[in-house]
């Protein structure tokens, strides 16, 4: 696979780090080289949070992403901060129920998903993050939805087994969105 650098950004509490972890574990099960780097510190405690995930066939150099191939923006400040760092030809996933603004670039592919609203409507309001991840897996040429259930299985602790089905529900909603 071509080295793919994914930057996920939003508010603390939106599951930014968890969705990054999902992608990292997915890379691990696919025998890829992987790095996962979270923001840590005061921003985690209610402010903005972000997470850098790199998936590659070859060893990962710097784990710090300065020019992402994919940006997932789950709030407006994150979109504004990172929109111009995405490489030309890259992808931007926008939670359009929280972000009114449109991306004013024509050299990137933009996906608007009302993920927070969709999650609320389905009674899984904490899983907007996984709806966007489902959409990403379906729409990125280097990624695939195959094996998602296996990763959810690995990632959700046995004590919270009920969350496995809900995570899969969210991922599937994202996969099917706009089809």
């Amino acid at each position: 696979m071509k080295t793919t650098q994914i930057l996920i950004a939003g508010f603390g509490g939106q599951g930014i780090l968890f969705s990054g972890k999902f992608l990292a574990y997915k890379g691990l099960t696919e025998e890829l080289q992987v790095s996962w780097l979270p923001s840590y510190g005061p921003e985690m405690r209610g402010g903005t949070a972000n997470c850098n995930v790199i998936l590659s066939d070859t060893p990962v150099g710097s784990p710090i992403i300065t020019e992402p191939d994919v940006l997932i923006a789950m709030n407006l400040p994150s979109l504004q901060k990172y929109v111009n760092t995405v490489v030309p030809g890259g992808q931007i996933y926008v939670d359009s129920s929280l972000i009114d603004a449109k991306v004013e670039r024509d050299d990137v592919e933009v996906f608007y998903i009302p993920a927070t609203q969709m999650a609320k409507d389905e009674g899984i309001s904490t899983l907007a993050n996984m709806i966007i991840i489902g959409h990403l897996l379906e729409n990125h040429s280097e990624l695939s939805f195959n094996g998602a259930a296996e990763v959810v299985d690995k990632l959700v602790p046995p004590k919270k087994a009920a969350l496995k089905d809900l995570n899969m529900k969210a991922l599937t909603l994202g996969k099917e969105y706009n089809k």
């Binding site: 691990l28 080289q33 790095s35 990962v60």
Partner: peptide, 10 residues
């Protein structure tokens, strides 16, 4: 350093 302490890798 904080980066290598906080990051995950295989």
């Amino acid at each position: 350093d904080g980066t290598i302490g906080q990051m995950m890798e295989p």
